[in-house]
Amino acid sequence: MSSSFDKYQKRRLISSYFSVALSIALVLFLLGLLGLLVINAKKVADHFKEQVTMTIYLKDTAKDVEIKQLEKSLAMADYVKSTDFVSKEQAAESMKAESGEDFMDFLGINPLKNSIDVHLKADFVTSEKLDVISKEALSKNFVDDVNYDNDLVNLMNDNVKKISFWILLISGLFTLIAVLLINSSIRLAVYSKRFTIKTMQMVGATKRFIRRPFIWRSVKLGIVGAIIALIGMAVVLYYVDKMFPELTLLNNPVLLAGLFGFVFALGILITWISTFFATQRFLNLNTDRLY
């Protein structure tokens, strides 16, 4: 009978530890994913900004040497990521493919112009900087026009600012929630041992001696939970990078290592602090109030 009861108690204890470790793992996993979002938010925003195209239309009188010189100067400019020359024939073929009709059959001529598509670096995709770059290109006598979607640029920059603000706000809120949830799980685990704590105290054990095994056990659960969370983060990061390689999520290993280290340390720190204060509460509690 006693053996069955001991086995039952052991199963309950293991189940309790498993629940605490799983709770810690889930909270740290979600916090880690939010951390990945925070550190890659600028990279994602920059990726979309760099998809904005500034098109420089060239006059029909533009000489090949002038076009080549312009391409070379653009390639060397610190604000340009890439350039692509599009001849009027290529532009006509693209328009024909999109519309399904050959407009040259009606017009008899190709009214399109040779152009250079310019993809700018993200830091230069603002209305002010695009206006300066546009005026610089128009100052050349063989450039006919410069075109870009100014409304899209303004909308994109406004949305990036709003999203960045909310990400930071949610990150702070979620960190607080994570601390409270882990603290609650640890307090419940310590609460189930409140009579053991008080019994040890009554036979003369010091507070430090009583706290030590509880803290060490919670720290081990924190380590287990953190490792599970880190494995989950690594799997998600791997598959997202595989699906969107253009985001180059794995190109900053130092920052990623810092985030993983932060999540691991947080798992240990929160469990240590939570257990310390939880055991301290029951150590200072009167025996009558244990019930």
Rank of each mutant, 00 (worst) to 15 (best):
F260T: 06
F276E: 05
F264E: 00
V236I: 07
L259Q: 05
L22F: 15
M95Y: 06
T55V: 04
G108P: 11
K161M: 04
A77Y: 03
K162G: 04
L266N: 02
V20G: 14
D288E: 09
F195L: 07
N154H: 04
L181V: 12
F106I: 13
N150H: 05
K49A: 02
L107V: 06
Y191I: 01
Q280L: 10
V65R: 00
G172C: 07
I197Y: 05
L168D: 05
D84R: 14
T196I: 08
G204K: 11
E89N: 05
N183A: 11
K220H: 11
K59Y: 00
L37F: 08
F124A: 07
D288L: 10
M54H: 04
V86W: 09
V118P: 02
S274R: 14
M243R: 15
A21Y: 06
A77I: 09
S16K: 11
E101K: 10
D131F: 09
E101G: 12
Y17N: 15
I231F: 06
S139H: 07
T53H: 01
A265V: 11
F124V: 07
S2I: 13
F260I: 07
S218C: 10
L138K: 02
L283V: 13
L285P: 08
N284L: 15
L221H: 05
L285M: 14
N114S: 01
S19R: 13
L290T: 12
K42A: 04
L230D: 03
L13R: 15
N251H: 10
M1H: 14
F264A: 01
S139N: 08
L176P: 08
F214Y: 12
V125Y: 00
L266P: 00
D145H: 02
V224N: 03
V65I: 05
T279N: 07
F124T: 06
E98D: 11
I268A: 04
K113S: 04
F244N: 08
P245D: 05
H47Y: 07
G32T: 00
I210G: 12
M76D: 08
S184F: 14
